[in-house]
């Protein structure tokens, strides 16, 4: 089974647009949205949700005021200042470390499973989709990403499908690490700007740190030729293949506003380039077997 993950380092480079287009071209892949913090893929996939499941992760202390003798031990031992003077717990600050519960002399603190969001099994016109919604201001995004990948794999096995297409999150931290570890191929979408290059270099550092094979797509490649050239030479130096150079075209935003993957509504240069990228990814995934 192959997992291909689309990430970007910098946000807003077109990662989700490209993921949606690949999903539309390939059909019959499992689609997984691991950008749980700002999940947007469903806006283009328009999934029909078949199953909604709660996502529990970590712990949250529940203080029973009938047993509490107000000794303040919990407040003292909490490294995160999550317990207020009235013994209420600030959900936003609590890490769920449980130290308070272990130190409470009267046993007034019970650790409960923390409800952090929802995850869904859905059908789309391009194939089955696993996605999620992390509760606002909730932590444990990495754990949710791991869960989605696990469910996507199970679903792939059940349906006899071989390929999982994953929309990752921006950055290089916890959810990104969870979405790329052990993947078959990481595709980094960048843009020809100083930020785009800087952030791409950091993500390339990350993929090489975890020894995951990766390649690059330059989106809006004609926005600044010099910067595009610079991306090409960075990639060349690191021995990273540039899979394609998608030109800037307003059709992309237009398609998004209409809720469609751009390849479904356009036959121009953008779509042609994404088609060629799609072939190259296939070749890479299935050539050296």
């Amino acid at each position: 089974m192959k997992e291909i993950v689309i990430i970007s380092g910098k946000g807003g480079t077109g990662k989700t647009t490209i993921t949606a287009s690949l999903a539309a071209l390939w059909k019959n892949t499992i689609i997984a949205d691991c950008d749980v913090d700002a999940a947007d893929l469903h806006l283009l996939m328009q999934p029909l949700t078949k199953q909604t499941n709660p996502f529990y992760s970590g712990k949250l202390p529940n203080i029973d005021m009938n047993l509490c003798n107000e000794c303040k031990k919990c407040i003292e031992v909490c490294e995160f200042n999550a317990i207020r003077n009235d013994f209420s717990v600030s959900k936003i600050d609590c890490e769920g470390c449980g130290t308070c519960a272990f130190f409470c002399p009267t046993g007034a603190i019970r650790l409960e499973d923390r409800h952090c969001g929802e995850w869904y099994l859905s059908e789309t016109r391009f194939g089955p989709m696993v996605h999620a919604r992390l509760g606002i201001a909730e932590a444990n995004s990495g754990k949710l990403v791991t869960l989605i990948r696990k469910e996507a794999k199970q679903l792939a096995e059940k349906k006899g499908l071989d390929l999982i297409l994953i929309d990752g999150s921006p950055g290089i931290g916890c959810p990104v690490i969870s979405s790329i570890t052990g993947a078959s191929l990481v595709v980094i979408v960048t843009e020809p700007t100083v930020s785009g290059i800087h952030d791409m270099e950091r993500v390339l550092g990350l993929t090489s740190h975890f020894q995951i094979s990766s390649s690059v797509i330059i989106n809006k490649a004609d926005l600044n030729r010099e910067m595009s050239q610079q991306i090409e030479s960075v990639c060349k130096n690191c021995n990273i293949e540039v899979l394609g150079r998608i030109p800037y075209d307003r059709i992309v935003t237009k398609a998004m506003v209409e809720g469609n993957p751009v390849v479904e509504v356009d036959n121009g240069p953008v779509t042609q380039e994404i088609q060629s990228i799609s072939h190259q990814i296939h070749n890479r995934l299935y050539s050296n077997q």
Binding site: D40, L43, A137, E138, A139, S141, T253, V257
Partner: peptide
């Protein structure tokens, strides 16, 4: 940072005002 989870909360905690930057698209 972008998003709405723990790194963002850490960054905007205890500020006087938040400016949210957006763009007029469905995303």
């Amino acid at each position: 940072p972008p998003g709405t989870s723990c790194p963002v909360i850490e960054a905007i905690k205890n500020v006087d005002f938040v400016v949210l930057v957006t763009e007029p698209t469905p995303f």
